[in-house]
């Protein structure tokens, strides 16, 4: 039975279901229960934005609050994963990877290959990504490309509650280290989500809108901006196809290429900074593999090459807007219209 729940609840539900199913699943992070050792209520926070609220009552000490020591507890989650557990570690804001990156980059990502295929590291690192919260330069970044760059890591970034649940369940069951990116601006967004457990396989993009004139590829929050742009474009007679990548590593090249072969035009929308981004990666892949199908140069719509500014007037300019996406689409169609 599906009912409308939020992205945040969907994540909570996925954790609950997997903890019920598999006793090796443990959840750890800063204030994920909250109130540890304090005189007031336990489960005082349930995570900084309440995502894990209520899980402690159901699963007790399989949820562990950690000290503010990311290197130690992210590393411990990775070590436990290498020893047969399935830890889900919450890094709060992905920006905090800066203090624990070695454990992810040189440890978790490498074990399988470096040990000749003998290891597996089924750890999930959940973290908030993205701008829009007026949280400034150190709490707002879209750092997905830093992780997709690293072989051995899987990178997931759901755009809606349905995907959040199914992809988190898959992430926990997956035998590789997964960086699970939760867009903080989406926590309140609701979708129809089945009560029962389901897993969404990695590497399967979702065509969230069909269209014949241009392919818009995105992930996370900007999928919604792309849909808004498509809506606007439809009024001008341009039918945009919108693809939500859902997982960035592995990435569903086939769906992207197939779509571009139909539309002949590509716009990639990425909230990350432009250099060496998901946008650049997709544009390059399409240019290399579907050049003949292209009727116009691929366009990238990204954040600018700057840190995230604090002032709301500047931050609102930072995240790719529906208007900017529509303008990029118009660039790809301009020649055809002129011809």
């Amino acid at each position: 039975m599906a009912r409308k729940i939020s992205y945040k609840q969907a994540i909570n539900e996925a954790l609950d279901l997997e903890m019920r199913r598999d006793p090796t699943v443990i959840v750890l992070g800063e204030d994920i229960v909250g109130g540890a050792g304090a005189p007031g209520e336990l489960d005082a926070w349930g995570g900084v934005l309440g995502v894990t609220k209520g899980l402690h009552a159901k699963h007790g000490n399989r949820l562990m609050d950690t000290p503010l020591s990311e290197s130690a507890y992210i590393g411990a989650a990775i070590g436990a994963a290498a020893c047969g557990m399935r830890p889900v570690a919450e890094l709060m804001f992905l920006d905090f990877m800066g203090v624990c990156f070695d454990q992810i980059l040189n440890q978790a990502a490498k074990f399988k290959y470096m040990f000749g295929g003998k290891a597996k590291t089924p750890v999930v690192i959940r973290a908030m990504v993205g701008a829009g919260f007026r949280a400034a330069a150190q709490h707002s970044q879209m750092l997905t490309p830093l992780f997709t760059h690293v072989p051995g890591l899987k990178v997931v970034c759901p755009s809606n509650a349905y995907d959040a649940k199914g992809l988190l369940i898959q992430s926990i069951r997956d035998d590789d280290p997964v960086i699970f990116c939760e867009h903080k601006a989406l926590y309140g967004s609701e979708a129809d989500v089945p009560e029962e457990s389901y897993a969404i396989p990695f590497g399967e993009a979702n065509i969230v809108r069909e269209g014949k004139d241009v392919t818009i590829v995105s992930y996370g929050l900007t999928v919604h901006r792309a849909l808004d742009a498509a809506e606007k474009l439809a009024k001008t007679g341009v039918q945009a196809e919108v693809i939500d990548l859902r997982t960035l590593s592995p990435i569903d090249w086939d769906t992207v290429i197939e779509s571009v072969e139909n539309t002949g035009r590509l716009v990639v929308v990425d909230e990350a900074n432009p250099r060496c981004s998901i946008a650049g990666d997709v544009a390059a892949h399409v240019a290399q593999n579907a050049f003949g199908a292209l009727k116009a140069a691929p366009q990238m719509v990204t954040a600018p090459h700057t840190p995230v500014p604090f002032s709301p007037v500047l931050e609102d300019l930072y995240i790719p807007s529906a208007d900017a996406i529509a303008a990029a689409v118009t660039k790809t169609t301009a020649r055809a219209l002129a011809a």
Binding site: E30, D31, A36, G37, A38, P39, W45, P67
Partner: peptide, 12 residues
């Protein structure tokens, strides 16, 4: 005494 909601007695 507190780091967010977590007490120093627990964490240190």
């Amino acid at each position: 005494g507190y780091a967010e909601s977590t007490s120093v007695e627990y964490a240190t």
